[in-house]
Simulated scan of single mutants.
Amino acid sequence: MSQDVRKYPVDRTEEEWRAALSPQEYAVLREAGTERPYTGEYTDTKQEGVYSCRACGAELFRSGTKFESHCGWPSFYDPSDSDAVELIEDRSMGMVRTEVRCANCGSHLGHVFAGEGYPTPTDQRYCINSISLRLTPTEG
């Protein structure tokens, strides 16, 4: 991902990202890595709140669109705003997938899959790395 020439509202050098993120966060958010399944802190979270980008703080998803997919990563059926994420064709791993990035800073979040048959309004599964997110619980 470091070869990417796109400009984002939050535009930092790779050195600045390395200083701001833990090595594990950097590997996923800036180098398009993936955390191991069933290890992320938000995989089974049911708490109400807003999920934001761990790198820049931009709102990405709301707990109302989170669902149990049993895939090993947090799953959402829709971002909180369609402009919050950027979708990019990903041909790594010998297949065609759709990568999900934060539209504010370009950080890798995960992938989105469609047509898997989940009973959700969009028939999409945004499969997102927990380490890419930060949950801010809603008061109530």
Rank of each mutant, 00 (worst) to 15 (best):
Y51W: 06
T65I: 00
V96S: 06
V85M: 04
A114Q: 14
A103Q: 07
I88Y: 01
S92W: 11
E89L: 01
C53L: 04
L109M: 13
I88H: 11
R54I: 00
F76L: 11
G57P: 00
R54F: 06
D81Q: 11
F67H: 03
E68C: 08
V100P: 05
E68D: 15
D83K: 15
F113R: 11
G106N: 07
F61Y: 15
D90F: 07
V96K: 07
V85S: 09
A58C: 05
K66C: 08
Y77E: 10
D83S: 15
S52A: 12
A58K: 09
M93P: 06
G94I: 02
C102Y: 09
G110I: 10
E59V: 15
C105T: 01
M95N: 00
S80N: 12
R101K: 13
A55I: 11
N104T: 02
P79R: 00
T39I: 06
E48K: 15
V112N: 12
E48H: 00
R101C: 10
N104E: 13
A58S: 15
E48D: 12
E68P: 03
L109F: 13
W73N: 11
P74F: 07
T43S: 05
Q47W: 01
C56M: 00
F113I: 04
Q47H: 05
L87H: 14
L87Y: 13
D81S: 14
F67I: 02
D81V: 06
S75H: 01
S75R: 08
G40H: 07
G106C: 06
D78M: 10
S52L: 01
M93E: 11
A58D: 06
E59I: 09
D83Y: 13
R101N: 05
F67K: 03
F76W: 09
S80P: 08
G49Q: 10
R101T: 03
Y51T: 08
E48T: 11
S63Q: 10
K66P: 00
D83L: 10
L109V: 05
Y42L: 07
C102I: 02
T65P: 01
E68S: 15
W73G: 01
H108Y: 10
A84G: 04
C105P: 07
G94S: 10
R101M: 04
C71A: 14
C71H: 02
S52D: 01
L109R: 07
S80C: 14
N104Y: 06
D78E: 14
S69M: 06
S63A: 04
G64R: 09
S75V: 11
